[in-house]
Write a protein that binds this DNA or RNA. Structure first.
Length: 155
DNA sequence: GCCAACGTTGGC
DNA sequence: GCCAACGTTGGC
């Protein structure tokens, strides 16, 4: 089982939006970056995922999720009215995919980027590739995150 | 709001 | 296939 960090701008889709959705679940759609897509497709049912608020104050891990269903073609790419429309993706030959995530909890004390930067997480793509919106976490990364969350009383 | 870093596009 | 120009992301 793997763990992931998924970024979203809270103005577009926040942890509160996820927890308010039916079944506290939502497709993670609209991702239009190949590396991020490959990571979305690699996510397996039951994997852990951390919800990260980007372009926010503060930027932080704000909650925890679980992968409910593996990625299916992202239908927003087929919708000409969607801001995620992509003419190069079709139902016959989909280019973009979306897994389904379920929110488990929102953390009382978000784990800020600032705090993460003081640890070996500095070596993770969270810091070395800050533009990647779907990030695989190593077992070591996950241990650090769990430790920090525990310290802050979130787990 | 600025801008660095990075990804994508398109001319050649 | 290279690379300049351009667009976007996301930290600050």
């Amino acid at each position: 089982m793997s763990a992931w960090l998924l970024k979203s701008e809270p103005e577009a889709f926040s942890i509160d939006d996820l927890l308010a959705a039916p079944g506290q679940a939502s497709l993670w759609d609209g991702v239009r970056n190949y590396m991020a897509r490959n990571n979305l497709v690699a996510m397996k049912k039951g994997d852990r995922a951390f919800f990260y608020h980007s372009n926010a104050r503060p930027t932080a891990i704000v909650g925890e999720m679980v992968v409910l269903a593996e990625a299916v073609p992202d239908v927003t790419a087929f919708d000409t009215n969607s801001k995620y429309f992509d003419a190069k993706s079709s139902p016959e030959k989909p280019r973009w995919f979306a897994p389904k995530l379920r929110g488990i909890r929102k953390f009382k004390t978000p784990l800020t980027r600032e705090v993460m930067a003081e640890t070996d997480l500095r070596k993770s793509p969270i810091f070395t590739n800050s533009r990647l919106s779907v990030i695989p976490l190593t077992a070591a990364d996950t241990r650090i995150i769990d430790r920090l969350l525990k310290q802050a009383g979130n787990l």
